[in-house]
Design a binder for these strands. Structure first.
Lengths: 206, 206
DNA sequence: AGAAAAATGTTAATTATTTCACAATGTTAA
DNA sequence: TTAACATTGTGAAATAATTAACATTTTTCT
């Protein structure tokens, strides 16, 4: 159970998202091939992932939706809950803040930061915006462990350094500029241009 | 040259992004280990990717930045250029539109769509917003081949179907709801919650 | 000139991920 | 009751991606 493949973790998160919708619709059982269909993958892969987390379905009935949701939660959610901040409350920052609000109990956005004094003090989806200058203090006070960076690319390296010094242990970088963090900090970077270029490449090759 | 690995395509896009910055700074040559450092990968991987596209560096001098940028462009950009639209001009749609404007010559966002009549007719970063009801017509008129969906999750399946019927051949789905498209359409899905959950999981396991 | 150093290019090995193939077994229908 | 069917669970095979190892070459230094 301890050494789950990277890809399995990603998929578990996605399975849960899909399962929550199924649960909301009143489904109590689901087959591996139904999950597979939703996620555009194979049923074998779903079964294998579920096998890896030690859950067992019912033959000919599939998996109990509620039980599977709970088990995935036990695996991928941390017990205590994690506090998250968003740095840069432009369009992307607001999109993310909006998107998360009230979605997960174990991951909470507890602060947003910006340099713009016009934004400081305002609330975004119920979350207060603080001055970037106070970031270190607030991160410590609120015990924030993960930061989502949505600032302009040119500011990313400097802000990344500030975040690391403030004690962040995980970072999600949505700026177009890769940043360097010490190896103790888990970093995930995503660039929309790369995704679009990938789509543009692969539409032409089939 | 034709069967480049998926991952290599992604990295080439990222190398180009980094190389463009280096070029802007006046660098003419770059070593594989310098690119590797920026992208948080190994120098071997960089050299292998570059080998796969058939480029050859200069021993002890590294790669010519300008030449490499151009070659990557020849590989991953389509010759004629591709028109792209953004569907849903909320925070995320605006972030993407902003982000792209004037960045690439071969990929252009030529239209944005929304249901909100208050947005229709307005311009977002120079791109006109059209009524969702006219989407099919505009996609054909403007020869749009790729769509970026940034609508609320519940609208995603219906809009995805409309896009497919309108003749889209590539789709980037940023909604939290997976959609189904025929196999001729290349689909890429990305969910920020999955990324954040992944970070949350891996910060706890090292 | 010769040796040492620092790069690239590439084959081979390794590791990670996915898929195949099929045994096991509960369910349905005749 | 029995046969046909549909589904899970999983070892083994196949495929994909990364890394190691090293030959080669240019540059620099003595």
């Amino acid at each position: 159970m301890k050494n789950l493949p990277h890809k399995t973790i990603e998929r578990l998160s996605q399975y849960r998202r899909a399962l929550l919708l199924c649960h909301a619709k009143g489904m109590t059982y689901i087959y591996s091939h139904e999950i597979a269909k939703i996620q555009h993958i194979t049923a074998v892969q779903v079964r294998r992932d579920i096998m890896l987390i030690g859950y067992t379905g019912t033959l000919r009935k599939g998996y109990n939706v509620k039980e599977l949701i709970d088990l995935i939660g036990q695996i991928i959610d941390s017990k205590e809950g994690i506090n998250v901040c968003v740095v840069g409350i432009g369009n992307l920052g607001r999109a993310i803040t909006n998107y998360f609000s009230g979605k997960r109990t174990k991951l909470s956005i507890v602060a947003v930061f910006d340099v713009d004094k016009g934004k400081v003090g305002k609330k975004y989806h119920g979350i207060e915006c603080f001055d970037l200058a106070d970031m270190t203090k607030i991160i410590k006070e609120k015990k924030i462990e993960i930061a989502i960076m949505t600032v302009p690319g040119e500011d990313a390296p400097m802000i990344s350094d500030m975040l690391v010094k403030a004690g962040i242990i995980g970072m999600l970088n949505y700026t177009p500029k890769p940043v360097n963090v010490p190896k103790e900090v888990y970093l995930e970077e995503y660039d929309m241009i790369t995704s679009l270029e990938k789509v543009a490449f692969f539409v032409k090759t089939h």
